[in-house]
Design a binder for these strands. Structure first.
Length: 553
RNA sequence: GGCGCUAUCGUCUAGGGGUUAGGACGGAAGAUUCUCAAUCUUCAAACCCGGGUUCGAUUCCCGGUAGCGCUACCA
């Protein structure tokens, strides 16, 4: 439209529930565009549908946006010089402009009743004509109409659609043209005095000086009415960018039916916001060249371009989201646990965090975030995922956190997190730490082959004897180094090596012949056994004992 | 029904009048690790159909088909 005027965009959700992925992408694209152009992002609440709108949904929406890392410069919560930012607070404005259109004959009074209109539509359909408004009241003399209104006759206000095709430009779709033949004169103000969406949106966008209307393409067919309205009001028409629909795997519009679709759902599952933002950006947009896929929020701000947004609908692919989520989970824990956690500076500030959490700080979101930001990613992840373990009965509530169990949990999360798609899968992965069942391990068909190997008996026996003899193991203080040493001794004494050595030992340790590396697992088992947890973690020695008992040797 | 939008591997996409049609997810195979995971390597996999324009169309144009959307005194 113009490069002189500063960019102003808006995201205008209805507060009818949690933010949905489709809307989230619209919000994201608006935000990326605004931030890249140094423009202004406006949040406007479209709450004119009183039946479905609720104040608490507005708070949810705001929380969801913030979680994604999207912010805005003007909105109901932050104010701004183009307010109010809730449509329900703007009713007088809508009426005023409707009256102006009426007095300028750009609009007219319509006395048709709903029943009449309904009838007209039905007749048109059966006669295979366009079910558009007949224009019956278009020709009523304005003075006469005014008299009828004053005398109390119910009437709505209708906009006059021009006698020529309506054209506008769309950044995503290019030139768009609609024949006026198929656009009826729309009602802008109902007989009840309540304005209609397609009218309200224009008044708001124009008064808020929105330069680029970026929204879902379900609004594309409504745009000619809106363009007419801008022109009738004598206001400049903004640029449009209509984003394609997000579909489910069955190519139908994505809905609750398809499972997780709200931002809150993803947050609860343990999808990281950086993963979701990255994924959403890739749904309909690709960088030039099209080979890069991993983008941080800042990189997106730099690279994003509305011109490169694809007009075709996109199927939401959960697997690809999970792939990105794995990437970002790994990125968050990229540092070495011992090195970051045991740094003196971090170690000392953990005391403060523990005190904060023990005194109920976890419920004060903003303060919690501020507290956590002083810590390493490992600690953040431990606090962030605590709830999942708690719900699985593996950890106590976070008020009972101690420095010891916090460090232990962070070490456990560090070990387990690279192998999950979503953080909510952590407790399931932690089963090998919390749920040890020697009998089940011996009976498991998965283990039958390993258990039947020629060297297995000797390995098991020697391993057991050595563990019983080891003093540190009896105290639950076996180190990874000592463990390795014992395994090597078993290797030398039995001649078993590779799988035939490790698999049986793994079964003793975790009940399964596959799992994480021993040098990381052993300290977790040993430390865990000394902690007060809802579910006791068996030490290495306790595991060996249980297994020997179950084996009966 | 009318109007509009859309159409490249199963999915997200790059590309574009002449290309071995590129990348990613997922799939398959292999390497590696004690195992799983991870990682790496390799493989399979696409231009909706029909006309036109053109020396040549997957690319441009037109039609068809399909999907989606809009067609309200819903938002």
């Amino acid at each position: 439209m113009n490069s002189i005027t500063a960019v102003r965009v808006r995201f205008a959700p209805s507060p009818t529930g949690h933010l949905h992925v489709g809307n989230a992408r619209t919000a994201l694209f608006n935000w990326l565009f605004a931030r890249q152009k140094g423009g202004t992002m406006v949040l406007r609440i479209e709450d004119t549908d009183v039946d479905r709108s609720e104040a608490r949904f507005e708070d949810q929406l705001i929380d969801d946006m913030k979680w994604l890392g999207l912010d805005w410069d003007e909105g109901p919560d932050v104010g701004g010089s183009f307010g109010p930012y809730r449509q329900s607070d703007r009713l007088p404005i809508y009426r005023e402009h409707a009256e102006r259109l009426l007095s300028e004959h750009k609009a007219y009074l319509c006395f048709c009743t709903e029943a009449e209109l309904q009838q007209d539509r039905e007749r048109a359909t059966t006669e295979h004509r366009q079910p558009i408004y007949s224009g019956k009241c278009r020709t009523v003399d304005p003075a006469e109409a005014q008299d009828r209104r004053v005398s109390g006759e119910a009437c709505a206000i209708r906009l006059r659609i021009p006698e020529h095709p309506i054209r506008f430009h769309d950044i995503v779709h290019g030139a768009v043209e609609f024949s006026n033949e198929v656009v009826s004169d729309p009602i802008i103000l109902r007989s009840s005095g309540m304005p209609v969406y397609n009218y309200v949106v224009v008044i708001d966008d124009a008064l808020m000086k929105i330069t680029h209307v970026i929204r879902g393409d379900d609004h594309l067919s409504n745009t000619p009415k809106q363009v007419t309205l801008y022109e009738a009001l004598g206001w400049p028409v903004p640029e449009f960018a209509h984003l394609s629909t997000i579909l489910g795997a069955d190519r139908e519009r994505l809905s609750k039916r398809h499972g997780a679709t709200s931002i809150a759902n993803f947050r609860d599952m343990g999808v990281l916001p950086e993963a979701l933002v990255n994924y959403l950006a890739l749904l309909g947009w690709a960088p030039s060249g099209g080979t890069r896929e991993i983008f941080s929020r800042d990189e997106l701000v730099k690279e994003f371009s509305l011109e490169r947004v694809t007009p075709s609908p996109a199927v939401f692919d959960m697997e690809k989201l999970y792939w990105l989520n794995r990437h970002y989970i790994k990125e968050r824990r990229a540092a070495d646990w011992e090195q970051t956690i045991l740094q003196p500076a971090i170690a000392s500030s953990i005391e403060d965090l523990v005190y904060f959490l023990r005194t109920g700080g976890a419920t004060r979101h903003n303060e919690l975030v501020a507290q956590l930001n002083r810590h390493s990613n490992e600690i953040k992840m431990a606090v962030g995922t605590w709830g999942y373990f708690q719900r699985a009965g593996q950890l106590p509530e976070i008020r009972l956190v101690t420095k010891e169990n916090l460090l232990w949990v962070s070490r456990m999360v560090y070990l387990l997190s690279p192998s999950v798609d979503r953080l909510e899968q952590l407790p399931e992965r932690a089963a090998l730490i919390f749920n040890y069942d020697a009998k089940a391990a011996l009976a498991s068909p998965d283990n039958a082959e390993v258990l039947g190997l020629p060297h297995t008996d000797a390995v098991l026996t020697r391993f057991t004897v050595k563990m019983f003899e080891d003093e540190s193991a009896s105290e639950g203080k076996l180190t990874a180094e000592r463990f390795k040493q014992i395994v090597n001794e078993v290797k030398a004494e039995t001649g078993a090596k590779g799988k035939e050595l490790f698999h049986p030992i793994r079964i003793v340790m975790t009940g399964s012949h596959s799992g994480p590396e021993f040098d990381k697992l052993i300290p977790i088992l040993e430390e865990g056994s000394h902690l007060q947890l809802p579910k006791h973690v068996l030490s290495v020695r306790e595991r060996v004992e249980e297994f020997a008992k179950a084996r009966g040797k």
